[in-house]
Design a protein around this nucleic acid. Structure first.
Length: 152
DNA sequence: GCCAACGTTGGC
DNA sequence: GCCAACGTTGGC
């Protein structure tokens, strides 16, 4: 079973929003690398929910993949901020997955903390300039992070 | 196929 | 709000 990390701006969609809704389509991903990672996701995979572009960037909760990749209709909607005229229903370019809420961490794992852990050097989230919004969490990194999750 | 220009991400 | 880093676009 794989583990992934997904970024969301809490002003747009936070872990609390996910808790209230329980399930949510993860749409709007408009980066090929991130999309390809989503295509590798399988039902039941663990997702680390990360708050980005906010006061305290951090892993704030856990979720599970509950639907595998399928076309993201927001790219066909001219009203949507995710609209992409290059994607058509005949030739879908972008995919979404669905995640289901699992838990909110009692203590978020802040980016500052994660950066201070030597074993996490090389983890894409903390390498300089990395802007990937969806990334795999390799087994060795997952073991380290899991240790820091505490009581969930 | 190169690369400059541009837009976006996201930490600070 | 700034700006470094990166991805994408489009002219050539």
């Amino acid at each position: 079973m794989a583990v992934w990390l997904m970024k969301s701006e809490p002003d747009e969609f936070s872990i609390n929003d996910l808790k209230h809704r329980q399930r949510e389509n993860w749409d709007g991903v408009r980066n090929f690398q991130a999309r390809n990672f989503m295509r590798d996701m399988r039902i039941g995979d663990t997702v680390l929910f990360y708050h980005s572009s906010c006061k305290v960037p951090a892993i704030v909760g856990l979720a599970q993949v509950s639907k595998e990749a399928h076309p993201d209709p927001s790219c066909w909607n001219p009203e949507s901020s995710y609209y992409d005229p290059k994607s058509t229903p005949e030739a879908p370019r972008w995919d979404q997955i669905e995640v289901t809420f699992a838990s909110i961490l009692k203590k978020p794992l802040t980016l500052t903390l994660l950066k201070s852990i030597p074993e996490l050097a090389g983890f894409p989230l903390i390498t300089k300039g990395s802007r990937l919004s969806v990334m795999p969490v390799e087994e060795n990194y997952w073991q380290v992070i899991k240790d820091k999750l505490g009581d969930i």
